[in-house]
Amino acid sequence: MISTLSASSAIEVRDLAKSYRNIEAVRGVSFDVRRGEIVGLLGPNGAGKTTILQTLLGTLTPTSGTIRFFGLDFAGNRESILARVNFSSTYVSLPYSLTVRENLGIFARLYGAAEPGKRVQDVLDRLDLADLADRYASHLSSGQMTRVCLAKALINDPEVLLLDEPTASLDPDMADRVRKTLVGLRRDRNTAILVTSHNMREIEALCDRILFLHVGRIIMEGPPREITARFGDADLETLFLRVAREGRG
């Protein structure tokens, strides 16, 4: 199941486990994400998706197992690795009292951009956000905030992008634009993208491969169409519902 293409692996996770007292949130998970690959992390609520994302971001210490980015051990190279990684989630925000440009400028500096102003303008242009640049974050709609958070996630031109439900609050048009941005990133920058979503159509359209989690374990792994064909389901949503309700593939 585990790819052995270490040379091109952006993320390598081996035997990752996380327990909280008596609860095993993640149970010995192993997977790779290659450069230029978009991988979907799927599973019902409580399957361990957020736990895995948080361990990959260093905000949660795993109980056991190893995480490597670009061939480097995450635990020993946290600072240099995080400079090459970024994250966006519908569930985090940016300071409301700052304008979009100010917020992005702060993060450009935090990620060590040599010319923060130029970097901010590049990202604003790429995500078609220039008209919102001088608007306070408090005056953004939730969809606009999600796009600005995605702009924050691109501020360091990341080699790895971790996304937690990136289109959850967007209308279909905006969601489609975000998906196109992600596909463009993979194509132009060879960015590795690990994304969680409850939108199965989006996962089918976007991801090269999915990791299907259930109660802390990967129970299926492969390209979306191949997996649905393997289990005889019409589409990913049907498969998801069956796994969530019956607990098996």
Partner: peptide, 18 residues
């Protein structure tokens, strides 16, 4: 607390900021 109130803590601590 400003970072807590603006839900910005996670953004900061997933950056290289120590």
């Amino acid at each position: 607390l400003e970072e807590v109130w603006s839900r910005n803590l996670l953004n900061l601590f997933v950056s290289p900021l120590t």
